[in-house]
Design a protein around this nucleic acid. Structure first.
Lengths: 141, 141
DNA sequence: TTTCTTGTTTAGAATTGTTCTAAATCATTG
DNA sequence: CAATGATTTAGAACAATTCTAAACAAGAAA
Protein backbone atom coordinates (compact mmCIF):
# COMPACT_ATOMS: atom_id res chain seq x y z
CA UNK A 1 0.00 0.00 0.00
CA UNK A 2 2.21 2.79 -1.25
CA UNK A 3 -0.13 5.69 -1.62
CA UNK A 4 -2.05 6.29 1.54
CA UNK A 5 -3.33 9.70 0.43
CA UNK A 6 -6.94 10.35 -0.41
CA UNK A 7 -8.04 11.14 -3.92
CA UNK A 8 -8.36 14.79 -3.02
CA UNK A 9 -4.76 14.88 -1.91
CA UNK A 10 -3.59 13.16 -5.07
CA UNK A 11 -5.39 15.75 -7.10
CA UNK A 12 -3.89 18.54 -5.05
CA UNK A 13 -0.41 17.13 -5.56
CA UNK A 14 -1.15 17.06 -9.25
CA UNK A 15 -2.22 20.69 -9.24
CA UNK A 16 0.95 21.68 -7.47
CA UNK A 17 3.11 19.73 -9.90
CA UNK A 18 1.38 21.34 -12.83
CA UNK A 19 2.04 24.73 -11.26
CA UNK A 20 5.70 23.83 -11.01
CA UNK A 21 5.61 23.59 -7.25
CA UNK A 22 7.01 20.60 -5.40
CA UNK A 23 4.32 19.02 -3.28
CA UNK A 24 6.05 19.49 0.03
CA UNK A 25 4.47 18.61 3.33
CA UNK A 26 3.79 22.28 4.04
CA UNK A 27 2.27 23.10 0.68
CA UNK A 28 0.06 20.06 0.76
CA UNK A 29 -1.11 20.86 4.28
CA UNK A 30 -2.04 24.42 3.29
CA UNK A 31 -3.51 23.29 0.01
CA UNK A 32 -5.81 20.89 1.81
CA UNK A 33 -7.04 23.59 4.12
CA UNK A 34 -7.60 25.93 1.22
CA UNK A 35 -9.00 23.70 -1.47
CA UNK A 36 -10.63 20.75 0.27
CA UNK A 37 -13.96 22.44 0.92
CA UNK A 38 -15.94 25.34 -0.47
CA UNK A 39 -14.35 28.63 -1.47
CA UNK A 40 -12.89 30.69 1.29
CA UNK A 41 -11.04 33.86 2.29
CA UNK A 42 -7.95 33.76 4.46
CA UNK A 43 -5.13 35.92 5.68
CA UNK A 44 -1.63 34.63 6.26
CA UNK A 45 -2.20 34.91 9.95
CA UNK A 46 -5.54 33.13 9.98
CA UNK A 47 -4.29 30.31 7.81
CA UNK A 48 -1.18 29.87 9.89
CA UNK A 49 -3.28 29.64 13.01
CA UNK A 50 -5.62 27.17 11.40
CA UNK A 51 -2.75 25.02 10.21
CA UNK A 52 -1.30 25.00 13.68
CA UNK A 53 -4.62 23.83 15.08
CA UNK A 54 -4.72 20.86 12.74
CA UNK A 55 -1.29 19.92 14.01
CA UNK A 56 0.66 21.06 10.97
CA UNK A 57 4.11 22.29 11.77
CA UNK A 58 5.10 25.24 9.64
CA UNK A 59 6.35 28.77 9.96
CA UNK A 60 4.49 31.95 9.22
CA UNK A 61 7.11 32.79 6.60
CA UNK A 62 6.20 29.62 4.77
CA UNK A 63 2.56 30.54 4.84
CA UNK A 64 3.42 33.87 3.25
CA UNK A 65 5.63 32.22 0.66
CA UNK A 66 3.02 29.64 -0.15
CA UNK A 67 0.16 32.09 -0.46
CA UNK A 68 2.19 34.15 -2.87
CA UNK A 69 3.26 31.16 -4.90
CA UNK A 70 -0.31 29.91 -5.08
CA UNK A 71 -1.38 33.37 -6.18
CA UNK A 72 1.31 33.55 -8.84
CA UNK A 73 0.15 30.16 -10.12
CA UNK A 74 -3.44 31.29 -10.33
CA UNK A 75 -4.64 29.02 -7.55
CA UNK A 76 -5.51 32.00 -5.40
CA UNK A 77 -6.22 35.63 -5.83
CA UNK A 78 -5.58 38.61 -3.64
CA UNK A 79 -8.36 40.85 -2.41
CA UNK A 80 -7.63 44.36 -1.23
CA UNK A 81 -10.31 45.73 1.05
CA UNK A 82 -8.37 46.79 4.09
CA UNK A 83 -5.16 48.69 4.42
CA UNK A 84 -3.95 46.49 7.22
CA UNK A 85 -4.27 42.86 6.18
CA UNK A 86 -4.04 41.08 2.87
CA UNK A 87 -6.79 38.64 2.03
CA UNK A 88 -6.51 35.66 -0.29
CA UNK A 89 -9.49 34.14 -2.04
CA UNK A 90 -9.72 30.58 -3.33
CA UNK A 91 -12.30 31.77 -5.81
CA UNK A 92 -10.22 33.04 -8.70
CA UNK A 93 -13.13 33.52 -11.07
CA UNK A 94 -14.92 36.72 -11.95
CA UNK A 95 -16.76 37.91 -8.88
CA UNK A 96 -17.00 40.67 -6.30
CA UNK A 97 -17.22 41.14 -2.55
CA UNK A 98 -19.18 42.36 0.36
CA UNK A 99 -16.87 43.52 3.11
CA UNK A 100 -18.16 43.84 6.66
CA UNK A 101 -15.68 46.27 8.14
CA UNK A 102 -16.74 45.68 11.70
CA UNK A 103 -16.11 41.95 11.45
CA UNK A 104 -13.29 42.13 8.90
CA UNK A 105 -15.21 39.54 6.91
CA UNK A 106 -15.57 38.96 3.18
CA UNK A 107 -18.57 37.49 1.36
CA UNK A 108 -18.52 36.61 -2.31
CA UNK A 109 -20.85 38.22 -4.80
CA UNK A 110 -21.11 36.06 -7.93
CA UNK A 111 -19.76 37.87 -10.95
CA UNK A 112 -22.53 36.80 -13.27
CA UNK A 113 -25.23 38.68 -11.40
CA UNK A 114 -23.51 42.04 -11.48
CA UNK A 115 -23.49 44.36 -14.46
CA UNK A 116 -21.29 47.42 -14.55
CA UNK A 117 -22.06 49.95 -17.20
CA UNK A 118 -20.62 53.24 -18.33
CA UNK A 119 -17.02 52.78 -17.26
CA UNK A 120 -14.73 55.08 -19.20
CA UNK A 121 -12.09 53.33 -21.25
CA UNK A 122 -8.60 53.01 -19.90
CA UNK A 123 -6.20 55.95 -20.32
CA UNK A 124 -3.88 55.71 -23.31
CA UNK A 125 -1.06 53.25 -22.90
CA UNK A 126 -2.99 51.40 -20.23
CA UNK A 127 -5.41 48.54 -20.31
CA UNK A 128 -7.89 47.19 -17.83
CA UNK A 129 -6.60 44.28 -15.86
CA UNK A 130 -9.66 43.74 -13.73
CA UNK A 131 -12.72 45.50 -12.40
CA UNK A 132 -13.33 45.00 -8.71
CA UNK A 133 -16.43 45.93 -6.81
CA UNK A 134 -16.36 46.12 -3.05
CA UNK A 135 -19.59 46.70 -1.22
CA UNK A 136 -18.80 47.95 2.26
CA UNK A 137 -21.24 46.87 4.92
CA UNK A 138 -21.98 48.29 8.30
CA UNK A 139 -24.23 46.93 11.03
CA UNK A 140 -27.80 48.03 10.44
CA UNK A 141 -28.63 51.03 12.57
CA UNK B 1 -4.24 95.39 8.63
CA UNK B 2 -5.16 92.57 10.97
CA UNK B 3 -6.22 89.81 8.64
CA UNK B 4 -3.55 89.14 6.08
CA UNK B 5 -5.01 85.81 4.93
CA UNK B 6 -6.50 85.33 1.49
CA UNK B 7 -10.15 84.61 1.02
CA UNK B 8 -9.39 80.95 0.37
CA UNK B 9 -7.66 80.69 3.72
CA UNK B 10 -10.52 82.41 5.50
CA UNK B 11 -12.90 79.91 3.98
CA UNK B 12 -10.68 77.02 4.98
CA UNK B 13 -10.50 78.28 8.55
CA UNK B 14 -14.27 78.44 8.49
CA UNK B 15 -14.54 74.85 7.28
CA UNK B 16 -12.24 73.70 10.04
CA UNK B 17 -14.19 75.59 12.69
CA UNK B 18 -17.42 74.08 11.46
CA UNK B 19 -15.83 70.66 11.68
CA UNK B 20 -14.91 71.39 15.27
CA UNK B 21 -11.20 71.59 14.51
CA UNK B 22 -9.07 74.47 15.64
CA UNK B 23 -7.45 76.16 12.68
CA UNK B 24 -3.90 75.56 13.77
CA UNK B 25 -0.92 76.47 11.65
CA UNK B 26 -0.43 72.81 10.70
CA UNK B 27 -4.01 72.11 9.79
CA UNK B 28 -4.28 75.25 7.73
CA UNK B 29 -1.07 74.44 5.89
CA UNK B 30 -2.27 70.95 5.03
CA UNK B 31 -5.74 72.19 4.22
CA UNK B 32 -4.36 74.67 1.73
CA UNK B 33 -2.38 71.99 -0.01
CA UNK B 34 -5.36 69.69 -0.13
CA UNK B 35 -8.23 72.02 -0.92
CA UNK B 36 -6.77 75.01 -2.73
CA UNK B 37 -6.75 73.42 -6.17
CA UNK B 38 -8.56 70.63 -7.97
CA UNK B 39 -9.32 67.29 -6.35
CA UNK B 40 -6.37 65.13 -5.51
CA UNK B 41 -5.11 61.89 -4.00
CA UNK B 42 -2.40 61.85 -1.36
CA UNK B 43 -0.72 59.56 1.10
CA UNK B 44 0.52 60.70 4.50
CA UNK B 45 4.05 60.40 3.24
CA UNK B 46 3.48 62.32 0.02
CA UNK B 47 1.63 65.11 1.76
CA UNK B 48 4.26 65.39 4.43
CA UNK B 49 6.93 65.68 1.79
CA UNK B 50 4.95 68.26 -0.11
CA UNK B 51 4.36 70.30 3.02
CA UNK B 52 8.04 70.23 3.80
CA UNK B 53 8.82 71.53 0.31
CA UNK B 54 6.55 74.52 0.79
CA UNK B 55 8.43 75.31 3.96
CA UNK B 56 5.80 74.11 6.39
CA UNK B 57 7.21 72.74 9.57
CA UNK B 58 5.26 69.75 10.85
CA UNK B 59 5.75 66.19 11.86
CA UNK B 60 4.61 63.09 10.05
CA UNK B 61 2.51 62.16 13.07
CA UNK B 62 0.60 65.39 12.67
CA UNK B 63 -0.03 64.63 9.02
CA UNK B 64 -1.50 61.28 10.04
CA UNK B 65 -3.60 62.89 12.75
CA UNK B 66 -4.83 65.58 10.43
CA UNK B 67 -5.70 63.24 7.59
CA UNK B 68 -7.74 61.13 9.96
CA UNK B 69 -9.47 64.11 11.51
CA UNK B 70 -10.29 65.49 8.07
CA UNK B 71 -11.64 62.11 7.10
CA UNK B 72 -13.75 61.84 10.23
CA UNK B 73 -15.16 65.28 9.46
CA UNK B 74 -16.05 64.32 5.93
CA UNK B 75 -13.50 66.63 4.32
CA UNK B 76 -11.59 63.65 2.94
CA UNK B 77 -12.25 60.05 2.19
CA UNK B 78 -10.02 57.02 2.30
CA UNK B 79 -9.37 54.87 -0.72
CA UNK B 80 -8.15 51.31 -0.33
CA UNK B 81 -6.46 49.99 -3.44
CA UNK B 82 -3.14 48.80 -2.16
CA UNK B 83 -2.20 46.79 0.86
CA UNK B 84 0.83 48.93 1.60
CA UNK B 85 -0.20 52.57 1.62
CA UNK B 86 -3.38 54.38 2.50
CA UNK B 87 -4.67 56.96 0.04
CA UNK B 88 -6.84 59.95 0.87
CA UNK B 89 -9.09 61.60 -1.67
CA UNK B 90 -10.31 65.18 -1.52
CA UNK B 91 -13.27 64.16 -3.64
CA UNK B 92 -15.75 62.86 -1.10
CA UNK B 93 -18.62 62.56 -3.53
CA UNK B 94 -19.91 59.43 -5.21
CA UNK B 95 -17.27 58.24 -7.64
CA UNK B 96 -14.85 55.44 -8.44
CA UNK B 97 -11.22 54.91 -9.38
CA UNK B 98 -8.77 53.70 -11.90
CA UNK B 99 -5.67 52.39 -10.20
CA UNK B 100 -2.44 52.05 -12.15
CA UNK B 101 -0.57 49.50 -10.06
CA UNK B 102 2.74 50.07 -11.78
CA UNK B 103 2.69 53.78 -11.01
CA UNK B 104 0.73 53.56 -7.77
CA UNK B 105 -1.53 56.25 -9.18
CA UNK B 106 -5.24 56.92 -8.79
CA UNK B 107 -7.54 58.51 -11.34
CA UNK B 108 -11.12 59.47 -10.57
CA UNK B 109 -14.05 57.99 -12.43
CA UNK B 110 -17.12 60.22 -12.03
CA UNK B 111 -19.87 58.41 -10.20
CA UNK B 112 -22.64 59.64 -12.44
CA UNK B 113 -21.38 57.82 -15.50
CA UNK B 114 -21.21 54.39 -13.88
CA UNK B 115 -24.21 52.14 -13.35
CA UNK B 116 -23.96 49.02 -11.26
CA UNK B 117 -26.79 46.59 -11.55
CA UNK B 118 -27.71 43.30 -10.00
CA UNK B 119 -25.99 43.62 -6.67
CA UNK B 120 -27.52 41.32 -4.10
CA UNK B 121 -28.97 43.05 -1.09
CA UNK B 122 -26.98 43.25 2.10
CA UNK B 123 -27.03 40.25 4.47
CA UNK B 124 -29.51 40.51 7.32
CA UNK B 125 -28.49 42.88 10.07
CA UNK B 126 -26.17 44.72 7.70
CA UNK B 127 -26.62 47.63 5.41
CA UNK B 128 -24.64 48.97 2.52
CA UNK B 129 -22.35 51.79 3.46
CA UNK B 130 -20.83 52.36 0.06
CA UNK B 131 -20.17 50.66 -3.24
CA UNK B 132 -16.64 51.07 -4.51
CA UNK B 133 -15.39 50.17 -7.94
CA UNK B 134 -11.70 49.90 -8.58
CA UNK B 135 -10.53 49.40 -12.13
CA UNK B 136 -7.00 48.04 -12.04
CA UNK B 137 -4.83 49.15 -14.92
CA UNK B 138 -1.68 47.68 -16.33
CA UNK B 139 0.60 49.06 -19.04
CA UNK B 140 -0.70 48.08 -22.46
CA UNK B 141 1.14 45.07 -23.76
C1' DT C 1 -2.85 91.66 28.70
C1' DT C 2 -2.13 87.65 31.67
C1' DT C 3 -3.80 83.43 33.11
C1' DC C 4 -6.15 79.17 32.75
C1' DT C 5 -7.84 75.27 30.48
C1' DT C 6 -7.90 72.22 27.06
C1' DG C 7 -6.89 70.87 22.50
C1' DT C 8 -2.89 70.04 19.56
C1' DT C 9 1.67 68.82 18.19
C1' DT C 10 5.67 66.21 18.46
C1' DA C 11 9.80 63.11 19.00
C1' DG C 12 10.55 58.91 19.62
C1' DA C 13 9.17 54.43 21.00
C1' DA C 14 6.09 50.77 19.95
C1' DT C 15 3.11 47.87 16.94
C1' DT C 16 1.68 45.39 13.02
C1' DG C 17 1.86 43.02 8.91
C1' DT C 18 5.11 41.57 5.77
C1' DT C 19 9.60 40.60 3.57
C1' DC C 20 14.37 39.32 3.70
C1' DT C 21 18.54 36.48 4.85
C1' DA C 22 21.39 32.85 5.33
C1' DA C 23 21.65 28.43 7.12
C1' DA C 24 19.43 23.95 7.61
C1' DT C 25 16.44 20.63 5.49
C1' DC C 26 13.98 18.10 2.09
C1' DA C 27 12.46 16.30 -2.65
C1' DT C 28 13.88 14.60 -6.77
C1' DT C 29 17.15 12.89 -10.07
C1' DG C 30 20.92 10.23 -11.62
C1' DC D 1 22.40 6.49 -1.86
C1' DA D 2 24.49 10.74 -3.10
C1' DA D 3 24.26 14.99 -5.40
C1' DT D 4 21.69 19.02 -6.63
C1' DG D 5 18.79 22.45 -6.22
C1' DA D 6 14.42 23.83 -4.34
C1' DT D 7 12.18 24.76 0.09
C1' DT D 8 11.73 25.91 4.79
C1' DT D 9 12.80 28.42 8.73
C1' DA D 10 14.15 31.42 12.73
C1' DG D 11 15.05 35.61 13.39
C1' DA D 12 16.38 40.03 11.81
C1' DA D 13 14.88 43.78 9.06
C1' DC D 14 11.43 46.81 7.15
C1' DA D 15 7.65 50.02 6.14
C1' DA D 16 3.55 52.11 7.30
C1' DT D 17 1.11 53.47 10.96
C1' DT D 18 -0.19 54.26 15.82
C1' DC D 19 0.84 55.34 20.52
C1' DT D 20 2.72 57.99 24.49
C1' DA D 21 3.54 61.47 27.43
C1' DA D 22 5.59 65.81 27.50
C1' DA D 23 5.84 70.44 25.39
C1' DC D 24 3.13 73.79 23.22
C1' DA D 25 -0.39 76.89 21.44
C1' DA D 26 -5.35 78.58 20.95
C1' DG D 27 -9.35 80.43 22.78
C1' DA D 28 -11.89 81.83 26.95
C1' DA D 29 -11.97 84.13 31.20
C1' DA D 30 -10.45 87.48 34.31
Amino acid sequence: MRSSGSKAVTELVQRLRVAGLRPTRQRVALGRLLFAGPDRHVTAESLHLEAAKTGAQLSLATVYNTLHQFTASGLLRQVVVDGAKTYFDTNTGDHHHFYAEDRATLIDIPGDCVVIDGLPKAPVGMEIERVEVVVRLKPRA
